[in-house]
């Protein structure tokens, strides 16, 4: 049997909160073998290939590709080179480690005014949500709010910049997105009112729910799991 490291050599570098993402399905699978399950229930395998739904054989080709630099030359000569300008025009993604976060900063006081102007009509003055739009701010027991559910602070910035305000996405400056992000993090008791957030400190803000996230291991079992 192959080790997870062999099959998914980069699994270990997945960021905090879901570290060893796929290796975790291994230990869970082995756990189930020793459990008292009905006779018609079996753990299909603890093989990593199956755990992430990849057909054996095709994964071998990926290994071959990775170990053979000669396979990295172009075959069909279709398409053209992308320019740096094109890439930067579309490359808006933000990673949990902060990669992709732009220059600039924001704080909750500026964010409060921006939120009232751009967000409150759909999400409520206090972030309580206006059906069918869910709450953004936790009041202790109101579902998937930023404070109660979201595992990464960078996702807040990314999603606001990517998709909000609804109907006019892209209309806010990066500075404004930082401030609205700060306001929402502050209202969820994740930062203080005076905290100025930027590319350096946003990724490190602790999200209370992050450690609950676990990798999918359903395909290690042939029954609902």
């Amino acid at each position: 049997m192959k080790s997870p490291a062999q099959l998914l050599p980069k699994a270990k570098i997945i960021v905090a909160g879901s570290g060893l993402l796929f290796a975790a399905s291994f230990s869970l699978g082995q756990e189930a073998i020793t459990g008292s399950t009905p006779e018609d229930r079996i753990v299909v395998t603890t093989d990593q290939d199956v755990a992430i739904g990849i057909h054996p054989g095709t994964i071998e080709d990926l290994h071959d590709y990775r170990s053979n630099p000669e396979r990295r030359s172009a075959t069909y000569n279709l398409g053209r080179a992308a320019t740096e300008e094109e890439i930067s025009a579309w490359d808006i993604g933000v990673s949990p480690d902060g990669q992709g976060l732009p220059a600039g900063s924001g704080d909750s006081k500026r964010g409060a005014a921006l939120y009232a102007l751009h967000c409150a009509a759909c999400h409520g003055q206090e972030g309580e949500g206006i059906p069918p739009n869910g709450a953004l701010v936790s009041d202790g027991n109101n579902g998937k709010t930023i404070g109660s559910y979201w595992p990464y602070p960078t996702t807040v910035f990314d999603y606001i910049r990517r998709a909000m305000p609804f109907g006019t996405p892209g209309s806010l400056s990066d500075q404004e997105v930082y401030s609205i992000t700060a306001f929402l993090l502050y209202r969820n008791d994740l930062i203080t009112e005076d905290t100025v957030i930027d590319a350096n400190n946003l990724p490190g803000i602790k999200m209370p729910n992050a450690d609950k996230f676990t990798p999918d291991d359903r395909e290690s079992y042939n029954y609902v799991h």
């Binding site: 980069k10 933000v94 990673s95 979201w150 595992p151």
Partner: peptide, 11 residues
């Protein structure tokens, strides 16, 4: 190297 942890794969 790593997933982006987008809103659609977290929240």
């Amino acid at each position: 190297k790593q997933p982006s942890m987008t809103r659609e794969e977290t929240v």
